[in-house]
Design a binder for these strands. Sequence first.
DNA 1: TGTGCTGCTGACCATGCAGTCAGTTTAATA
DNA 2: TATTAAACTGACTGCATGGTCAGCAGCACA
Lengths: 207, 207
Amino acid sequence: MGEAAAGAAMKTKQQVVSEFRRAEIVDAARTVFARKGFAQGIMDEIAKEAGVAKGTLYLYFRSKTEIYKAVLDHDMRALKKSTLERLDAEKGLRGKIRAFAFVRLERAEANKEFFRIMDSESGALSYTRSQYRDWLREPVLRLASAIGKAAEQGKIRRVDPEKTAWLIADITRGTIQRRLLSQKETPLAADAEFLLDFIWASLAAKL
Amino acid sequence: MGEAAAGAAMKTKQQVVSEFRRAEIVDAARTVFARKGFAQGIMDEIAKEAGVAKGTLYLYFRSKTEIYKAVLDHDMRALKKSTLERLDAEKGLRGKIRAFAFVRLERAEANKEFFRIMDSESGALSYTRSQYRDWLREPVLRLASAIGKAAEQGKIRRVDPEKTAWLIADITRGTIQRRLLSQKETPLAADAEFLLDFIWASLAAKL
DNA sequence: TGTGCTGCTGACCATGCAGTCAGTTTAATA
DNA sequence: TATTAAACTGACTGCATGGTCAGCAGCACA
């Protein structure tokens, strides 16, 4: 088995380098697209940012569009993954809602460039927008099912779980946008708690 | 005074025609930009859509960017205006919140093209995004002040009025986006009421 | 040192499109 | 109907930029 693994690893030897180059290019592209948007994000600039010649970009990607997709794909996959993980790690609904909002706010903080692309450039390719919703859907539906269960158990009032989950996503997204746009840096935790209180007050309300 | 008015009107004689042409061009541009986005929204196509030659566009606007801005400016101004009007027409907070959401949902229905531009193309020009927030700010702040008053009077629980108002705006925007994207047409009133219930449950909650 | 292979380079090409302007149509006035 | 001004036209120009490819550099092995 060590042998087989080594065999596989050998072949990867060059592939590893190749993967690394791709990653470098994707990083450069993210920076440029975040700065200039898709249309103004020139291939020459991406190349310069990546420290390679333009031709090299085309050794690793077919086209500009493909690089763009690669950036989104990579980052969205990561965002989705960590959202789902943190969601599953929590037991109670309140914790899950907090987790949902928190991961996303945190990642927005740590990866502003990506969120800036998401936020202000989402329609550059018709691809992007629908894709964004697709990546978002699974976490939202998982949240929805938690809402459904909590409602059945009488822990919160009866609501349409899916619609409610989408509203939570809306609030989260809006808060992220506002944070990205505003100059003064408000503490993340404050925004997160405010958001959570608002939601929870609604769900746990006894009218 | 009739004389003076007539004098003013005379001068407008040509100006009226000019205004009309501008409006025609703006309408055509809105259609094209909604269909293709800013970058792919070609001047030739706008001209064709407006039923004039490309050169004519440049008799009424300096550049493509200026046409784009004219579209946004016109529609955002109208949206802001009717939002404020409906907001002021309502007395109670619940009515105001409903009004806020309702007008926007209605206008999104009646003017899908504009909202499609807003939604998926907002970052095409760096201009757009910040501008959108500016147009939105005044209605949101007015809503915030109503929230503040209601809180003082003990009609709702104590909350940060401005932050809360922005959350309401987030939810409204998200709902509009979902409606624009989804195939099946859900009744507007249902979405509006759901949204309102969610918000109101939070604000009026006794925990 | 020579030979060949791999990955990289950047000047170059092709295309698409914003913006122009010489010329034509339309309309108003005499 | 003739004259002229204003509005409109669309072929054309220049430029920006995505994508290509002939050749170069670096390296391995003899």
